[in-house]
């Protein structure tokens, strides 16, 4: 479905995740974060950059990966993106949430 955000039209799925990463930009990320009641800081963006790197290399995202990333520890990750940090961080980053095969 279509969504209008940060003066741009984007395509999202039922849960609000972007279906086409090429439509993403930082302004959209900011607005998506606001909808999750998250005010983005430099630390938030560092995490988003890390997530984008993993996504581009097609590496799976996990809490363990975050722990080893050197960007942030897990408690901080939960503090930045409360309640389901991977779900929220991927939504803001404009990429699909971590999935299994079914």
């Amino acid at each position: 479905m279509k969504k209008f955000i940060a003066n741009t039209e984007i395509d999202v799925n039922d849960e609000g995740y972007l279906t086409d990463f090429s439509q993403w930009n930082k302004d959209i990320g900011n607005e998506l974060a606001k909808e999750q009641e998250i005010e983005m800081t430099d630390k938030h963006w560092e995490v988003i950059d890390y997530i984008h790197d993993k996504y581009k290399n097609e590496e799976p995202l996990s809490i363990r990966g975050i722990k080893k990333s050197g960007v942030i520890n897990i408690k901080e990750f939960y503090a930045l993106f409360p309640a389901g940090p991977l779900k929220k961080a991927t939504l803001i980053a404009g990429i699909p949430k971590p999935k299994s095969c079914i």
Partner: peptide, 16 residues
Amino acid sequence: TPLGGAFTKPKATEAL
């Protein structure tokens, strides 16, 4: 599960 649900893909969630 560490994921968002036992089923994570839209079609499978709907069907199963």
